[in-house]
């Protein structure tokens, strides 16, 4: 385990995965921050500005992280070499996923901090757990992105399912909030239903599902025969 914590090993993992995958969530977060800044400059309503920030925190960054996780779980140019190493390949993949998720978490924490300082009321509706509201969609998107990419052996298809689910929930947010079983899957509960009674349950359920997806990914990575068949293309 110790090998992972060495600085050079970390640097190699980031370079092997592609530094641009790490730049992407930062870029998206900055984009939303700029949009919110412009709205503030144009003296938009505070609720609109805070919504814009929350859309980045709860919507855009988790989506881009899900896309990145799909890429990490499915792309491996040196697959056979990795599989023949004493270091377990699935540990390596999990570590890469953890690195990306941790990096995204830092970005999200910065985002929430900005939001909490600028518009404290925007978050308070959801209780004191609000500071961790991003964790739920982040884990869910990351987990399902990784798992689908493995199961389908096709990154584009996995991202297609993730993207459609994401847009679907955004459009039909009212529907998502109105059935018991869809409430559990509502990615954007803070944006649209922060005051609802199911908010906390929803966050916890999403976190649980995300962890479950990551666990399934972990188990599925054992199936080397499946991976060796290459992409479904």
């Amino acid at each position: 385990m110790s090998r992972f914590l060495r600085r050079e090993a970390l640097r190699y993992e980031v370079r092997v995965v592609g530094p641009w995958l790490f730049v992407l969530p930062l870029f998206v977060a900055v984009l939303f921050a700029i949009a919110a800044g412009m709205m503030a400059f144009k003296q938009a309503q505070h609720s609109d500005i805070s919504n814009m920030l929350m859309a980045g925190i709860e919507g855009a960054v988790p989506l881009v992280v899900g896309i990145a996780c799909a890429a990490i779980a499915s792309r491996e140019p040196a697959l056979e070499l990795q599989l023949a190493l004493p270091a377990q390949y699935r540990v390596t993949v999990l570590w890469r996923l953890v690195l990306l998720l941790a990096w995204a978490a830092l970005i999200e924490i910065a985002g929430v901090a900005v939001l909490a300082l600028a518009f404290p009321w925007a978050l308070h509706r959801a209780g004191s757990g609000y500071l961790l509201t991003w964790l739920a969609p982040l884990l869910w998107c990351g987990g399902i992105g990784a798992l689908l990419a493995l199961l389908l052996r096709n990154r584009a298809a996995a991202i297609a399912l993730l993207g459609v689910a994401w847009v679907f929930e955004l459009v039909f947010h009212g529907l998502m909030a109105s059935y018991g079983w869809t409430q559990a899957l509502d990615l954007f509960a803070t944006m649209f239903s922060a005051a609802a009674s199911f908010w906390l349950a929803n966050r916890l359920e999403l976190i649980g599902l995300g962890v479950l997806f990551l666990l399934a990914t972990w188990f599925y990575l054992r199936n080397t025969e499946w991976r060796l068949r290459g992409e479904d293309a």
């Binding site: 090993a9 092997v16 140019p77 040196a78 070499l81 990795q82 190493l85």
Partner: peptide
């Protein structure tokens, strides 16, 4: 298959760590 963006030296170093 190898990592296209690493140099040979870096690639070997990475593999050695693993």
């Amino acid at each position: 298959g190898m990592y296209p963006d690493l140099s040979a030296r870096e690639f070997l170093d990475y593999m050695a760590i693993l």
